[in-house]
Structures are given as structure tokens and as C-alpha cells.
């Protein structure tokens, strides 16, 4: 029933209403976001672009409930989250939103499995279920055979895939990725984008920040930011990042050719 409605009028998964964020640097007020209004519908794959200092990181932080707006209202689903306290925000980060960072941000000297288990640990998921779900998430990103590897023993692409597994293990509605391919070579970037497209296909809303127009070609909606405002918002037909299905067989197939 719900799905039927969503087909005709896509459900808004998050909505910004005149969000302003002002940083106080001593005596100087620096506006990072100015009266930004934005609606993202469920299943959107959005890229936020813009020069550094344009406010895209601030936008992501507020989207991710890591930071609170100075003014304006932020609705996540039906819930107004702009005035929640730290504990409630932590809960939203735990259940509703998954993060992927440019520099991966995995815990050092910790195995892939343990890194992926981390959100479930704070979510109070019981031991056995936690392990099973973490293993499933790692299998989904193509690292089922590396669950006992330490994060520092892995390549950048593998680390980023562990980070994606960590983001999706708590079955979030939204995945936020801040420059997810910024530290990766172009082939690995392609793999990561393919993975994110896969996730988007399963109904997860994916929002990424990127500098790169090539990366932005794989998304369905591109926002341009400048001086704390969204100056353009266009939809496009996304380019397919991957022809065949799973990541590993693709790599082998290419080398065979």
C-alpha cells in the first residue's frame, strides 16, 4: 500500500527547511549554510558538488546528524531532528544513517569484522546476530574472505569497502559518503561507485559529496553548491558503473580479456 503511494508521489525521506549554519570564529560569524531548503526522496542517488568552502561538508554533517543547524528545520522522515539532543542524534546515526568517509575512518589494529560490528555493538544487537550480520555485510561488499584481516593490512579500496559494509550493517535508510573515492585510483573508484549504485538499487538513499564530474556521472541527481547555497539541482540518467554483477568476478574477467 505504502509502496503504491510512493510510486505515484515519491516519499520524502529527508527535508531541509531554511537550514542556516553559522560558525562562530572568535568575533567573526562565518555562515556555512544560508537558508538551504532541500527535499530528498527515498531511493535517490544524490551527488553534492562544489568548490571547497562552498558548504557541502557542513551540509553533510547536518544531514548526518553529526551537527545541528543554527536555524531552520530538518525532517528525517516525519521526525524533526533539528533540535534533538546528543543521545537522540547518536541513536539516529546508529539506526537510520550510515557514513562513509574519504579517509575510511576504520579503527586501527582491528579486524574487518570487528569494524563492521561496531554500529551493532552500540545498537545493542546480541552477539551471535551481530556476527552474522557483520559477516553478511562484508560478503555483500565482496570481502567475505577477508573478515579476519586487520584494516591496516588492506588496500585502500578494500578499506573503503569495509567502511561501506560498516555503513550498511545497521540497515540504514540513508548512506552518506563524503568523498568516498577521493583517496582511491580510478579503477577502485569505479568499484566503489558500482557498490553504491547496487545499494541505491536496493532502496537505500545514497548521498555523496564529490569533486569529480566522472564520479557524479553515476548518480541520478546532482546538487551544486556555492557560498552556502544550492545553486543548481538537476536530475540525470545515471551511467552504469558496472556491466556484470559481483565485484571480484568482474576483475578476473577483465584480466582474462
Amino acid at each position: 500500500m505504502r509502496k503504491g503511494i510512493a510510486m505515484t508521489a515519491p516519499e520524502a525521506i529527508l527535508r531541509f527547511e531554511n537550514i542556516t549554519k553559522i560558525y562562530q570564529m572568535g568575533d567573526v560569524s562565518v555562515p556555512a549554510l544560508q537558508e538551504v531548503s532541500l527535499t530528498v526522496t527515498a531511493g535517490d542517488f544524490v551527488a553534492v558538488m562544489g568548490a571547497s568552502g562552498s558548504g557541502k561538508s557542513t551540509l553533510m554533517n547536518i544531514l548526518g546528524c553529526l551537527d545541528r543547524p543554527t536555524s531552520g528545520r530538518y525532517f528525517l522522515g516525519d521526525q524533526d531532528v533539528s533540535s534533538l539532543d546528543r543521545n537522540a542524534l547518536a541513536e539516529i546515526r546508529n539506526h537510520t544513517i550510515g557514513f562513509v568517509f574519504q579517509n575510511f575512518n576504520l579503527l586501527n589494529r582491528t579486524t574487518a569484522l570487528e569494524n563492521v560490528e561496531l554500529p551493532l555493538l552500540y545498537g545493542g544487537v546480541p552477539n551471535r546476530e551481530r556476527q552474522t550480520r557483520a559477516r553478511e555485510a562484508l560478503e555483500r561488499v565482496g570481502l567475505g574472505d577477508r573478515i579476519r584481516h586487520y584494516s591496516n593490512q588492506m588496500s585502500g579500496g578494500q578499506q573503503q569497502r569495509v567502511a561501506i559494509a560498516r555503513a550498511l550493517v545497521s540497515r540504514p535508510k540513508i548512506i552518506l559518503a563524503d568523498e568516498p573515492t577521493g583517496n582511491l585510483d580510478s579503477r577502485t573508484s569505479l568499484e566503489i561507485m558500482a557498490l553504491l549504485q547496487d545499494l541505491d538499487q536496493t532502496g537505500i538513499t545514497v548521498i555523496i559529496v564529490t569533486h569529480s564530474p566522472e564520479v557524479a556521472a553515476y548518480v541520478s541527481r546532482v546538487l551544486f553548491m556555492k557560498d552556502g547555497r544550492i545553486i543548481s539541482d538537476r536530475r540525470q540518467e545515471p551511467q552504469k558503473a558496472r556491466m556484470e554483477a559481483p565485484a571480484q568476478p568482474t576483475a578476473r574477467g577483465e584480466s582474462a580479456l
Binding site: 553529526l66 546515526r93 576504520l106 552500540y122
Partner: peptide, 12 residues
């Protein structure tokens, strides 16, 4: 590390 833990949902 504290930041990472908080980002994935650790409460204070």
C-alpha cells in the same frame, strides 16, 4: 577513534 565511534552511533 572517539569520533569514529560517535559517528556510528556511540552515545556519550
Amino acid at each position: 577513534e572517539i569520533g569514529i565511534r560517535m559517528a556510528v552511533g556511540a552515545k556519550p
